[in-house]
Every structure is written in C-alpha cells, then in structure tokens.
C-alpha cells in the first residue's frame, strides 16, 4: 500500500510537470530544455520562502510566476533573437543554474525539515494520516489540469494549438505566432516550476541537482500517456498525461522493487521509452495502411 501511495504521490507531482512538457513538446513541437532548471527554480523559490517564514501556500503562486519568467526568457531568446528552439532552452537552462544558486543564497542544499509546509498545514492533515499528502498533491494537480483544459478552449488556447499544427494558419489570422509561442513557453515553465515547488515540500529539501534529467521524466510521461491512451476518444489528452506520468513512476518503482541492479536503471528507462515509441510508430503505420 505504501508503495502504491508513493507511486501516486510522485506520479501526480510529475504530472504537473508533464502538463507543461505536453504544451511545449506536443502542442508547440518545441524541445524545451529549460525544464531541467525551471524545476529546481520552483524548488529554490519555495525553500527560501518557507525558510523566511512565509505561508507555504503562497510559495505555489510564487514558484508558478518564477517559472513563467524562465519560460519568458527562453521564448524571448527564441522569438526575438532568432535563436534555434533547442539552443534557446539550453541557454536559459545554463543561466538558471547560477540564478537558482543565488536564490538559495549560495547553498546547493537547503533543508526545510523543521518548517511547516502545504502538507502539514493541510485541513486533512489530522484526519487522513498517510493519505493526506497524496490528496493534497492530487487536488493541486487536478486544478492545474482543469485550468489547462479551460485555457485550451479559449481563443488564445486555440491559437496555441494552431501554431504547433500549422503556423501559417496563425499568420493568416493576422496573429503574431511569436507571441503565441512565448505564451506557451511561459505557461509550460510555470507549471514545471510549480511541480518543483510541490516536490520540494514533499521531499522537504531543496537540492540544486534535483532538476537533472527532469525533461526525460516529463517526455516519457507525455509520450506514454499520449501514445498509449491518447487514441481513446473518451479520454482528454490532459487525462492521458496524468495516466502516463503515474505509469512511468510505477515502472521505476517496479524496477526498484524487483531489485534490478542499480547500474541498469537508466538503461531500462531508456529501453522502456524506446519500446513505447516503436509500438506507437507501428500502430500509426498500421492505421495509415488501413486508411489506404
């Protein structure tokens, strides 16, 4: 039971991040590496605010805003300075590393064990015991999902989807596709930093290296979710991202539980990733043949 709870906790936290990665990778077709640094950015903002005695719930909007700024930076570099998408993400990611260290006052590791956090202050803390954490995370995740569903239905949301699919449509509509891209990056990184903020309070410490490889987890979640469950018409894409994230974390948990050699972990993660991509490519090819 405890293992399932931990998979759900981790899965839901990374869902928030995966929703952001979904916007950049799937909707905008923008490989955004800012994620590896905007995740710890949210955590750094969170740890510093909590240390300063500020209400932990306020760290959520603050981290969201900080992540938005990081996304804005990547967007501006890409759109205004005409730097390639991959490179603009790398540039922001690299610079953010120093920024994160500065935010944390030069400390690479900042524990917040002795402070209150969103979980200890939760209204269900006494009643639900071990289920408290997963419920709080679930609620935050669900709010993000619904707000995103709503946003994608607005005019701005439609434009966002249009840029990824066929950007000439946007130009034809006399809209600036650069602004649309920047908007997408801002929302995406805001979500990623929010995930970092929740993660920091879940593990109760900030660590500068906690962002390394985050983009891989985000991509894996999105790909598992959208490729395996995205085809089902009764499931919203955002819902499939949630499922993908939980499945990914469950796979890692099973790998650990089975006692697979630690040195093989990355190999297995990569292989799992590849298998899903290959299967979904075959499926796609099959579907195209059927149509023909």
């Amino acid at each position: 039971m405890a293992l399932i709870l931990s998979v759900l906790e981790q899965g839901f936290i990374y869902t928030i991040l995966a929703l952001g990665v979904y916007i950049t990778y799937k909707i905008l077709d923008f490989p955004d590496l800012t994620v590896d640094s905007s995740f710890p950015l949210g955590a750094a903002v969170c740890a510093v605010m909590i240390k300063a005695g500020i209400n932990p719930y306020l760290t959520l909007p603050a981290a969201f805003a900080a992540g938005g700024i990081a996304g804005l930076a990547t967007g501006m570099i890409h759109v205004k300075f005409k730097v390639r998408d991959l490179l603009s993400g790398i540039i922001t990611m690299t610079m953010l590393y120093s920024v994160n260290l500065h935010i944390a006052g030069g400390q690479a590791n900042m524990p917040i064990f002795s402070s209150e956090n969103i979980f200890t202050l939760s209204p269900f803390a006494d009643k639900l015991g071990e289920y408290n954490k997963v419920l709080v995370i679930f609620i935050i995740m669900l709010i993000c999902k619904f707000l995103m569903d709503l946003y994608l239905k607005t005019k701005s949301g439609y434009l966002l989807r249009a840029v990824g699919d066929n950007d000439t449509v946007v130009t034809v509509l006399a809209k600036d596709k650069g602004i649309v891209k920047i908007t997408g990056l801002v929302i995406a990184n805001a979500l990623v930093a929010l995930a970092g903020c929740v993660m920091c309070q879940d593990q109760r410490f900030f660590e500068i290296s906690m962002g390394t490889g985050t983009i891989v987890i985000g991509l894996a979640s999105v790909i598992i979710g959208t490729n395996v469950f995205g085809k089902l018409s009764f499931i919203k894409t955002t819902t499939s991202v949630i499922i993908g994230s939980v499945i990914y974390k469950a796979c890692v948990a099973v790998a650990i539980w089975l006692g697979l050699a630690a040195i093989d972990m990355k190999l297995i993660t990569g292989a799992l990733f590849l298998v899903i991509l290959v299967i979904s490519n075959f499926r796609k090819a099959g579907a195209e043949n059927d149509q023909a």
Partner: peptide
C-alpha cells in the same frame, strides 16, 4: 539522480 533518491527511499 534526485528523482531516484526519493523513490528508493520510499520503496
């Protein structure tokens, strides 16, 4: 890998 540390501890 920080994501692993949490999962290992929890498992």
């Amino acid at each position: 890998d920080m994501a692993n540390t949490n999962q290992i501890a929890q498992s």
